[in-house]
């Protein structure tokens, strides 16, 4: 049993689980004591955890592969790479065009572009977005009606128009994709395909722009944690080392090790072939993907499932 596996086994013994629960409760109490009057009670946070886990499980069941990237740092073996990854470790994205229109913050643009790519459209037609309250999105994601965000609980709603497909499926897909992002801590509250058009009257102040995938490399890695203590969610794994292996296994010496940037992304070029990506030292986060010649950038997700 290697050290990682042994550590995970320790964290699964009843004592460790109970101790984590008690610390989580202490964290909740500490947060509550700092919450403004009128903030959501503790039970609603519990509901959120359940809801977040349900969403996570659903996403896994649907075969969703969340992957996004952004320039990051450091490669060990640049000869195995091609393209724009530099020795300094900063994979410099060089989009040929700039997004046009009424733009949201840069980090929202990155999330939008990455999700669009992950859902199979490298050139989405348009993205409409606004800042709103989670409860106003209950028609789209019912559990957001009681989402326990505090006074700073504003969220970004982004709705993309394009041709989207769940990864690994071959159905008709959908023409709209939505994202709900917590403004303050920049993590996903929800995302998915929109079954019907969202009436403009629901959000009269929505702005729009034409998104652009901001990388010119052929692989866009996104590392994130999923689940974890309340309020749960999908968190970017910042400054995280990701090992890239040739083939389908985490075995032998990695081709390269990259470090994700402050938003959890890294862009790099790889020759066509099959690669396995995992957080360094965490082989259970491995995901395998195939890079093909002349195809849009590959969105790769490296996911740490948190207890």
């Amino acid at each position: 049993m290697n050290a990682d596996r042994e550590d995970r086994a320790i964290l699964e013994i009843p004592f460790a689980v109970e101790l984590a629960r008690q610390l989580d409760a202490a964290a909740t109490a500490a947060l509550d004591s700092a919450m403004p009057v009128g903030a959501h009670p503790r039970w609603s946070r519990l509901l959120l955890v359940i809801a977040a886990l349900a969403v996570a499980c659903t996403a896994v069941a649907l075969g969703l592969a969340l992957s996004a990237s952004h320039p990051g740092s450091a490669d060990m073996n640049p000869h195995s790479l091609i393209g724009s990854t530099s020795h300094s470790g900063r994979a410099t994205p060089s989009p040929t065009t700039s997004p046009q229109g009424d733009l949201p913050p840069a980090w929202v643009q990155k999330e939008v572009a990455w999700q669009s790519l992950a859902y199979g459209d490298a050139h989405p037609e348009e993205c409409s977005w606004t800042v709103t309250r989670p409860s106003r999105l209950a028609f789209l994601v019912p559990y957001l009606k009681s989402y326990p965000l505090r006074a700073d609980g504003a969220v970004y709603l982004a709705v993309l128009q394009g041709q989207f497909q769940l990864q690994g499926t071959h159905g008709p897909g959908a023409t709209r994709l939505f994202l709900v992002l917590w403004k303050r801590d920049r993590f996903y509250l929800a995302h998915g395909l929109v079954p019907a058009r969202i009436a403009p009257t629901q959000f009269p102040h929505m702005r729009s722009y034409q998104p652009v995938v901001p990388v010119s490399t052929n692989v866009w890695i996104r590392a994130y944690g999923e689940g974890g203590p309340a309020p749960g969610g999908i968190y970017p794994s910042r400054n995280t080392k990701v090992s890239v292996y040739a083939g389908t296994k985490v075995a032998g010496r990695p081709l390269t090790i990259v470090r994700t940037d402050a938003d959890g992304f890294f862009a790099l070029d790889l020759k066509p072939g099959t690669y396995t990506f995992s957080m360094t030292g965490k082989p259970y986060t491995a995901t395998t993907a195939t890079v093909r010649a002349d195809s849009p950038p590959l969105a790769v997700a490296v996911v740490l499932q948190m207890f």
Binding site: A20, L23, D24, T28, L31
Partner: peptide, 17 residues
């Protein structure tokens, strides 16, 4: 953000135990 401490716990608890 007190919940960050729980993540710290997950990282360090096995070694401490």
């Amino acid at each position: 953000r007190p919940y960050s401490f729980v993540a710290f716990y997950y990282h360090t608890m096995p070694g401490l135990l």
